[in-house]
């Protein structure tokens, strides 16, 4: 029996209890979107206040999108030192699953939980639109099970999403199969024209070398409800659930 297909009516919560924690920083604004998306998989989801020190036994911790601490200094730079981050970092170091979306990715990068950094978009513009993503890593659980010949339509909304890493770090990312997604066009070609923010090699998401920390700029949680007209994000979030349950 395949428990973790797209149809989660077969999902047996009692066999595979899993708890998701969404951290709320001052300035987070996608926390409820993330809660709604994970609750739609019939999972137990709690919000974790940034001043707390308790992850409440969560198996998966999510750092949501937004503008934590007003994006002051650098995006994610101040949130990275919020009290709960001590426990979040310990969770990741224990091998616990951690995902950062958009501002959450920026926080992961500032905490050096994933390699690289997010710079101002080369256009100097805030970009809010649907883009296409091609899954890359065949060894990271987030993308291994996705269709690698398909372009997934996912929205982005950010001003600082230009992924950068130095040559050495970039080579390591590629050699270790740590690139999760690249921006592409609808046909799946990673071209300059399909790169919305100037990211190095069209990189839209990466994981750490241990493959338990995932960061991505696009918002799968905003494309996870049929009522919103796009459910491609469900496929991505679904991978995350199988990752945690594996």
């Amino acid at each position: 029996m395949t428990l973790y297909t797209y149809d989660f009516s077969t999902y047996d919560y009692y066999l595979c209890p899993m708890k998701v924690g969404v951290v709320v920083f001052p300035g987070s604004n996608c926390d409820q979107d993330a809660v709604d998306a994970f609750e739609s998989f019939d999972l137990s989801v709690v919000k974790l206040w940034h001043k707390d020190h308790d992850l409440q036994g969560c198996d998966l911790v999510v750092l949501p999108g937004g503008f934590s601490y007003g994006d002051y200094l650098r995006t994610g730079a101040v949130a990275r030192f919020s009290p709960i981050m001590t426990e979040v970092i310990a969770h990741a170091n224990r091998g616990g699953y951690l995902m950062g979306i958009c501002n959450g990715f920026q926080i992961l990068a500032e905490a050096q939980l994933v390699p690289g950094v997010l710079l101002r978009n080369t256009s100097q513009q805030y970009v809010c639109k649907n883009i296409y993503l091609k899954p890359q890593s065949t060894s990271a659980l987030l993308t291994a099970g996705l269709d690698h010949d398909r372009a997934y339509k996912i929205p982005i909304a950010h001003g600082d999403g230009c992924y950068f890493a130095n040559n050495e770090a970039l080579a390591r990312l590629n050699d270790n199969d740590q690139v999760l997604f690249r921006y592409c066009d609808e046909a799946g070609n990673s071209t300059d024209a399909a790169n919305p923010n100037g990211s190095l090699d069209n990189i839209a998401g990466v994981c750490n070398d241990r493959r338990n920390v995932f960061g991505m700029m696009p918002h799968p949680e905003r494309a996870a409800d049929a009522a919103l007209g796009n459910t491609d994000g469900r496929y991505i979030l679904e991978q995350l659930l199988t990752a945690v349950l594996a």
Binding site: L73, R74, A77, V78, F81, E110, G116, V117, L119, F164, A165, N166
Partner: peptide, 8 residues
Amino acid sequence: QLLANLIM
């Protein structure tokens, strides 16, 4: 630790 990010 905070004011600058030495990656960039």
